[in-house]
Simulated scan of single mutants.
Amino acid sequence: MVSRFGDALRNAALPLLAVRLSAEPLVIASVTACGYVPWLLFGLLGGAVADRVDQRRAMWVVDTVRGLLVAAFALAVGLGHASIPLLLALAFALTTLQTLFDNASTALLPALVDRAALGGANARLMTGQQIAGGLIAAPLVPLLLTAGACTPFVADAGTFLVAAALVASLRIRPPQSGPRPAGSTLRAEIGAGLRALWGDRTLRATCLATLLCNIGMGALIATLALHVTRWLDAGDTGYAAAMTAYSAGSISGGFIAQRLARRTGRVRALLVAGSVQTGSLLLVGSVRDLSALVVGMLLLGAMNMVWNVNQVTLMQQRSPASMTGRIAAAFRTASTSGAPLGAILGGAAARLYGLNAPALLAAVLFALAVTSLIPAGKPDVRAVAPDDDVMTARAAR
């Protein structure tokens, strides 16, 4: 949660810094896009490595390296050397390291809690991350920027190093992955993870739906600073209000994600979340008022948390313990590949059709995601973890 606080500072500060360096929508969107490209290049490799190594050690080493990189970037900004190429390089490097960190953390959690408790554990973990990273950090960005463009990045570097120390201090037994077959290669293990994901009907449909949602979110997030500061003319304060509303919504979504899943089943919870997000994006893109944006971002954040908790829990529960890192990597790589495409599409849409066009484009993509997910909600989907009372809730009806 400490590093998520720093992530929120950096993720909010980077677009604002990019806006100060360039007024071109495609250039600004490229900063966001570059932050996703490493998932396409290294995501599968990160998952295979995560299944081979001590995941706790991998996490604290990665956070240490990321802390040093951001500290160097903060120094460059403080000395007046900020530039779009430097922003692109930082985004690329941090996400490359994140491919290992995220897959390692996803694979580690099922070793720490029972599979039947994963939904609640994911909800509490993600809610805590939002409290630290969004509700507290996002409003601080405009204040920190007044102290200097490098200040949010100095704070981010510090949180990475603190997080690394905390993870390194954990005294837990690493999960047992079992012996690998003789002659097994990373390429073969990556292929096994891809086949496992494709062979599970529920995960396959969820991955496709998440891909469409990520294209939409990539379009929105890459141009949100322009949407708020130019289309709404709300300035940096309005941008902070939008990000704070999204974070507050995410926190509330963390409290209802498991309850909704218990009532409907996890896949149907995804359907509900996607439908509400579609309406929220239509509101954001069609009503030129800051209050409408705040309400839309609040709902968007709440349902995004519902989606994330249930999507990650489904993936963990339906994955063999020895393959969780690889299946998670295959899922993330496939679904996250939409984000850089969405960022570029968002920049192009903003340039050609207006600064509110990316939000409307995102609404269309979310509607398609809901439609693509409908077949996975049928009651004949097999249950891999029968002790989970929400995976197939109401399926007997």
Results as ranks from 00 to 15, higher is better:
M1V: 06
V2M: 00
G6E: 02
L14A: 12
V19Y: 13
A23W: 15
P25N: 06
A29R: 03
S30V: 08
S30G: 06
V31C: 14
V31R: 14
G35Q: 10
P38R: 05
W39A: 07
L41V: 06
F42E: 06
A50Y: 04
D51I: 01
Q55W: 05
R56P: 00
R56I: 00
W60Q: 07
V61I: 02
T64Q: 04
V65M: 03
G67K: 10
G78I: 03
P85F: 05
F92W: 12
F92G: 08
A93D: 06
T95C: 00
L97Y: 05
N103W: 10
N103V: 11
N103Q: 14
A104F: 09
S105Q: 13
T106R: 15
A107Y: 08
P110Q: 08
D114H: 11
A117K: 11
L118V: 01
G119N: 09
G119I: 05
A121Y: 12
N122Y: 03
M126I: 11
I136E: 15
L140P: 05
V141Y: 12
P142W: 08
L143M: 08
T146Y: 15
G148S: 05
A149H: 15
C150L: 11
P152D: 04
A164I: 02
V167N: 01
A168V: 00
L170E: 14
P174A: 09
Q176A: 12
G178F: 06
A182D: 15
A182I: 08
T185V: 02
R187H: 11
A192Q: 12
R204V: 00
R204C: 00
R204A: 00
C213W: 04
R230C: 00
L232H: 15
A234Q: 09
A234R: 10
G238Y: 09
M243V: 11
Y246D: 15
A248S: 15
S252N: 11
A257L: 09
Q258G: 08
R266A: 01
A273W: 01
V276Y: 08
V276N: 13
G279S: 09
L281I: 11
L281G: 12
L282P: 09
R288T: 12
R288V: 12
L290G: 13
S291L: 14
L293K: 15
V294I: 14
N308H: 15
N308A: 12
Q311Y: 04
P320G: 13
S322I: 10
T324D: 05
R326N: 05
I327D: 04
A330L: 03
A330C: 04
F331K: 02
T333W: 02
S335E: 02
T336C: 03
G338C: 05
A343R: 07
L345G: 07
G347N: 06
G347D: 06
L352V: 08
Y353A: 10
A362E: 07
A363F: 01
F366I: 00
A367F: 07
I374Y: 08
P375L: 01
V381E: 07
A385C: 09
D387R: 02
A393I: 02
A393G: 03
R394P: 00
A395M: 00
